[in-house]
Design a protein around this nucleic acid. Structure first.
Lengths: 144, 144
DNA sequence: ATAGATGCAAATGTTTTGCAGGAAA
DNA sequence: TTTCCTGCAAAACATTTGCATCTAT
C-alpha cells in the first residue's frame, strides 16, 4: 500500500495530458511499484493476472510506456531482446552477470564527465547513454 | 576485390572447425567487407541479392553469426531492435545521432580503466561491455 | 559416401495495431 | 455524450528452426 507520491504523480500526469484515470492504470502502477529490480512486461502481466484476471497484456505494455513518459519508470534493454522496466531513481548504470542474470547498479561520476567530454569533442548534444558491463559475478565465479 | 587476409582467416576458421567452404559464405564475406559502418542482415541480404539472387536470407543470418565467431565481424545492438554488424577492428564504443542515425566510433582509455575498477569493486570478472552515447550530431543541431 | 550447408516455409517471441464495445471526463 | 481506454485477435517485425535437398569434402 501507500506509494502515495507515485500515485499522485501519475494522477497529475494524466490530468495534464487529458488522459483518463482508470482502474487498470492504477493496478498496474501498484503492481509495478511492488517489484524490485528489473521486470519485463510479461513478468508484470503474470503478477497482475492473480489479482486482476481481466487486465490484458496489451494494457500492461501500453501502461508501462505511459509510466515511462510520466517519469515513474525507466525502460532498459539488456542483452536478450526483452524490454525491462525499473522504478525510476537517480541516474546509474548496470553490471550484469551473464551466468545467473543478476543485475547490479553502479554510478561513476568520472565516467559521466568523460562522456560529456567525448560528446563535446564531436559536437554532439548528449541526450542519454547506455552503459552496461557484462561478466561473471563472484558467486558464479566461485561455482566454476 | 582482394580482402585476401580476411578470406584466409575465414578459410582457416572453417577448416579448424570442420565446416565447409561454400560459394555463399565467400559471397557474403565479400559483400560484408565492402560495407562501411554498421549494416543489418537485411541490408546485406539486399546487396547480395543483386549479384546472387539465389542466396536466401537465412544463409545471410547464419553466415553473419559465423563471421562473428570467426572474429571477422562484430554484432551490435543499438536502440531500435535490429542487429547490426561492423567489420571487426580495435576496441571502441559508439556515439549515435538519434535524428539522422549517424554512428561515430570513439575510444577512451580512461573509461576503460574506470570500468575495470568498477568490476573489481563488485568482484565481477568483466567479459565485455556496451557503451553507447545517444544525442544530436552537429549537423542535426544546426538544422534545429 | 557422408557430414554439413542451403533455401524455403513455417514457427518463434516480443511488441504493436485495428477495431468494436466500455468507461471516464 | 464525447473522448479516451480496454481487450481481444490479428499483424508486424526480426530472427530461428524443421526439413528435404544439395554440395563440399
Amino acid at each position: 500500500m501507500s506509494h502515495d507520491l507515485e500515485r499522485e504523480a501519475l494522477a497529475r500526469y494524466l490530468e495534464d495530458h487529458h488522459l483518463k484515470h482508470t482502474k487498470q492504470r492504477e493496478a498496474i502502477l501498484e503492481a509495478f511499484l511492488e517489484t524490485t529490480g528489473h521486470v519485463t512486461s510479461e513478468d508484470l502481466y503474470q503478477r497482475i493476472r492473480d489479482k486482476h484476471p481481466n487486465i490484458g497484456f496489451t494494457t500492461v505494455y501500453r501502461t508501462m510506456k505511459l509510466l515511462c513518459e510520466a517519469g515513474l519508470a525507466n525502460e532498459r534493454h539488456f542483452d536478450g531482446g526483452v524490454t525491462r522496466y525499473e522504478i525510476q531513481h537517480e541516474h546509474h548504470d548496470h553490471l550484469v552477470c551473464t551466468k545467473c542474470g543478476k543485475i547490479i547498479e553502479f554510478e561513476c561520476s568520472m565516467i559521466e564527465s568523460a562522456q560529456d567530454e567525448i560528446a563535446q569533442r564531436y559536437g554532439f548534444r548528449l541526450l542519454r547513454h547506455r552503459h552496461e558491463l557484462y561478466g561473471h559475478c563472484p558467486e558464479c565465479r566461485a561455482k566454476g
